[in-house]
């Protein structure tokens, strides 16, 4: 078994090497062409891959035929492959630079100018890691509330941005889930980015998403309500090889007067977030990258 794992690891390393060489020689387009047979073989032969995307695709395309469903599976995996190629391109090719637009940038800067801070809520969709790195150009420091074990990888991608400012990481595994440090950052008028789609532990609210219930974390809304800061729902979409679109889908101020109203406020906020994700997935159905059973309780 150990021998087999080692063999597979070597095979995987060889595959990565082959992609990097292709990227250097033929650019992203060459890597995308190489991606087609690789993804096709994965989708055809890997039951694990098909199982991984099934919970989402069955809900997003409930009436798909067998062939249609196969096509959706291929396009989802291929789309994720393109994001990985883009990351590889940014990380290994000298002078590689992402280009893109931020729809709603003025809204974000106008909210920041009010001095109350801003909670920037996003999700594991599109080329979020590469695209969000470009938020380093905002007029105030940007903090990312995230898990410690992902710190190194995420920091790496944020640092791919060549702008002067870099992301400050707030450890979500630290005391009180990083909430005190995040609140302090908001009180300084800074931006705190949070992934709003994955509930791991702590407080959550159950809402409907693509026809079934999911749990969404409450922390972003509580932080915003406590600081008097707005929440901006911002999602990234890969719009081509090396390009992105960041779009503000909603901006709102979570507020509650007493603890009794807290649950109701959190429910309203979670519903806004869930609706925004659904709207995004109508436009970009293959850029959903929560590759696990998101609906499993």
């Amino acid at each position: 078994m150990v021998g087999k794992n080692k063999y597979l690891q070597q095979l995987e390393a060889l595959g990565h090497w082959f992609f990097y060489v292709t990227l250097h020689l033929f650019g992203q387009r060459g890597a995308h062409i190489l991606l087609v047979p690789v993804v096709l073989s994965y989708v055809l032969w890997s039951r694990k891959i098909r199982r991984t995307v099934q919970p989402y695709l069955k809900r997003r395309f409930p009436k798909a035929s067998v062939i249609g469903y196969f096509r959706h599976t291929f396009l989802t995996v291929f789309s994720f492959g393109r994001v990985l190629v883009e990351r590889g391109w940014l990380g290994t090719v000298k002078d590689a630079c992402l280009s893109g637009t931020i729809e709603g940038y003025e809204q974000i800067t106008a909210e920041i100018a009010k001095g109350k801070g801003l909670v920037l809520l996003t999700a594991h969709m599109g080329n979020w890691q590469s695209a969000l790195a470009n938020l380093g150009d905002l007029p105030v420091p940007v903090n990312a509330l995230m898990l410690y074990d992902k710190k190194a990888v995420a920091k790496h991608y944020f640092d791919l941005n060549r702008s002067k400012k870099s992301f400050q990481i707030i450890d979500a595994e630290g005391g009180f889930g990083g909430m005190v440090d995040s609140l302090a950052a908001l009180n300084r008028g800074e931006v705190v980015t949070i992934m709003g789609d994955r509930f791991i532990k702590g407080s959550s609210t159950t809402v409907d998403f693509l026809g079934s219930e999911i749990k969404l974390p409450d922390s972003a809304y509580m932080l915003a309500a406590s600081a008097g800061a707005p929440v901006a729902i911002v999602f990234a979409a890969q719009t081509g090889g090396g390009s992105y679109q960041l779009k503000v889908w909603d901006i709102f101020y979570p507020e509650y007067k007493s603890r009794d109203e807290r649950g109701q406020m959190l429910m309203g906020c979670a519903e806004k977030f869930s609706s925004a994700m659904e709207e995004y997935l109508v436009l970009y159905p293959y850029q959903w990258y929560n590759f696990h059973n998101f609906w499993k309780k």
Binding site: F176, G177, M179, V180, L183, G202, S203, D218, S219, M222, L223, S226, A227, R259, R262
Partner: peptide
């Protein structure tokens, strides 16, 4: 927090405020 009065991370934020 935790065992004891049972406050959670959301309460921590409120308490700071």
């Amino acid at each position: 927090f935790g065992e004891g009065l049972g406050l959670d991370s959301l309460d921590a934020v409120e308490l700071v405020v």
